[in-house]
Simulated assay, not measured.
Amino acid sequence: MGRFHGGFGIKGEVKLESFTDPPERLFKYQPWLLRDAQGRERECTGAKGRVTPKGVVAVLPDIADRDAADALRGTEVFVPRSTLPPPAPGEYYWVDLEGLRVVNSEGVDFGTVSHLFSTGANDVLVAQGDRERMIPFVQPDYITSVDFDAGLVTVDWDADF
């Protein structure tokens, strides 16, 4: 749901990249599970924040100074699935797409969805198979169907791309 990028100011505020839309919606979904680069996890309840011209800034109850905020750099924010609303028709949580098989309209198997990322212009689906393919997640232009029952994403994408 998000990732910390280090301290903001001297009072323990933390710069936060939010993967929600709008970015401040992340604060509605709590408790947070914080996972650092070494895989250590801890729960955080009561985080507050705001959007600034320089991005999202968070205040965590147990972070009181710049050093403690900087120590969170790279820590990822997860939330329990039960706190999220169900996606609207035609919308997907990225995590639900990961692991689905990807084939093009000619039936060529591209492997499975490894992950997705945002470029700002659009989201990109990464299919990992015999090689990695990056496919713009633009419906219906390139992503023609998502079938969770079949575990399949069908794309209009040339096998040579």
Rank of each mutant, 00 (worst) to 15 (best):
V14P: 00
R25C: 00
A127F: 02
S118D: 15
R3N: 08
A159R: 12
L100G: 02
A71W: 07
F4E: 02
V56H: 05
H5C: 04
K11E: 14
T144Y: 06
Q139N: 10
G74P: 05
A71C: 07
W157T: 05
E91H: 15
D147N: 15
G111M: 05
P85H: 07
V77R: 09
E41C: 05
R42P: 00
L100S: 03
E13G: 05
I143F: 08
P22Q: 08
R66T: 02
Y93N: 04
L16M: 06
F78S: 02
W32P: 01
G55L: 01
D21S: 14
L152M: 08
A69M: 03
P136R: 05
R101P: 00
G74R: 09
D70H: 12
V103W: 03
R50C: 04
T112N: 13
A69T: 03
T119G: 07
K48I: 09
V126G: 01
L33S: 05
F117R: 15
I135D: 00
G6F: 10
A58V: 03
V57R: 06
L60K: 07
D158N: 15
R35K: 14
S118L: 14
G6T: 09
S105H: 13
A64Y: 12
Y142V: 04
M1L: 10
D67F: 08
M1P: 01
R101C: 00
L16Q: 02
T20W: 08
G99I: 04
H5L: 12
D96C: 05
F4A: 07
R131K: 13
F161P: 00
